[in-house]
Design a protein around this nucleic acid. Structure first.
Length: 274
DNA sequence: AAGATTACCTGAAGGC
DNA sequence: TGCCTTCAGGTAATCT
């Protein structure tokens, strides 16, 4: 499940391998992953060079430019199971839906569940299609984040998953952040002290940076562009560990449902808010 | 109007 | 070549 650190890794790989290269071909075998049609995307992008790239939350926006300077942008979201492979001798299977050719270097897009999207956008790194997406979780100033969350009455876990408040956290890193901050997933931001909220943000940034350094978390499907799994899984404190002992206090970790998501927490380290 | 639910997909896992 | 149900979760759309 790609969240901010996994998406950042993908972005770095794309930049490192493709910056300055020209897109020379585009093959699409499942049209649903591309918006609009392959023909329309080809018309805008083939012949353009990859100039740069921007990430906000779990979105990547690739900036292409034609020789006359005319810009074009491709917005990418991997959703649940999207993967990019840039790998010598990679053999596509039935889940590879799109191949971009960069002057002989093939870039494969694979997506088992077909939730991911590559979308042509015309309005740069801050497109209207992302107007409802909040600031990036890794860089949002504490003051701005507090303003956006402090009056919320829903469970803090739902707020952290809400990409409109701040973007980048998914189910894994939300549970990890709340555990490190010693905050119960059902606690309401409007009931918490400012210091507790600040601690949640501090821990979220910490866990994202740490996961990034370890190449992301491979739980189900994530691998990097060369097909290697991330190493952060063995660092997880609560996610995927329901019924196992808390690494800090030994209590049995509990599993509940919050905002429709499986949620693991320590009943002793993260005391019930009520 | 924020919060909750469902649709979109496939594969893994478990019960029988 | 076992069948069926449940679960996994990011986001948009649709409810209440």
């Amino acid at each position: 499940m790609p969240e901010l650190p996994e998406v950042e890794n993908v972005g770095r790989a794309l930049l490192a391998n493709l910056q300055g290269r020209r897109l020379t071909g585009l093959k699409v075998s499942f049209a649903g992953v591309l918006d609009p049609s392959a023909a329309a995307v080809r018309r805008r992008l083939v012949g353009a060079r990859l100039e740069g790239l921007h990430r906000r939350g779990k979105y990547l926006i690739l900036h292409f430019a034609h020789d006359d300077g005319r810009p074009a942008y491709l917005m990418l979201h991997l959703r649940m199971t999207g993967q990019i492979f840039i790998l010598d001798g990679y053999v596509p299977d039935k889940h590879v839906h799109l191949v971009m050719d960069f002057e002989g270097l093939p870039v494969h897009y694979r997506d088992i569940r077909k939730f991911g999207r590559l979308s042509l956008v015309e309005d740069g790194y801050e497109p209207a299609a992302m107007a409802h997406i909040g600031p990036d979780m890794l860089t949002v100033p504490a003051r701005q984040w507090l303003e956006r969350i402090v009056r919320r009455r829903g469970p803090i876990k739902a707020c952290l998953l809400d990409q409109g408040i701040a973007s980048g956290l998914g189910n894994i890193y939300v549970d990890e952040s709340l555990f490190l901050a010693r905050v119960h997933p059902l606690a309401r931001p409007c009931d918490l002290e400012e210091a507790e909220l600040r601690e949640v943000l501090r821990r979220a940034k910490q866990v994202l940076r740490l996961a990034l350094r370890h190449g992301g978390t491979t739980f189900m499907n994530f691998t990097n562009f060369q097909g290697k799994p991330g190493n952060f899984r063995r660092k997880l404190r609560v996610y995927g560990r329901a019924g196992q002992p808390c690494r800090d206090c030994g209590a049995s970790l509990e599993k509940i449902t919050v905002a429709g998501r499986g949620t693991v927490y320590c009943p002793r380290c993260q005391p019930d808010p009520s």
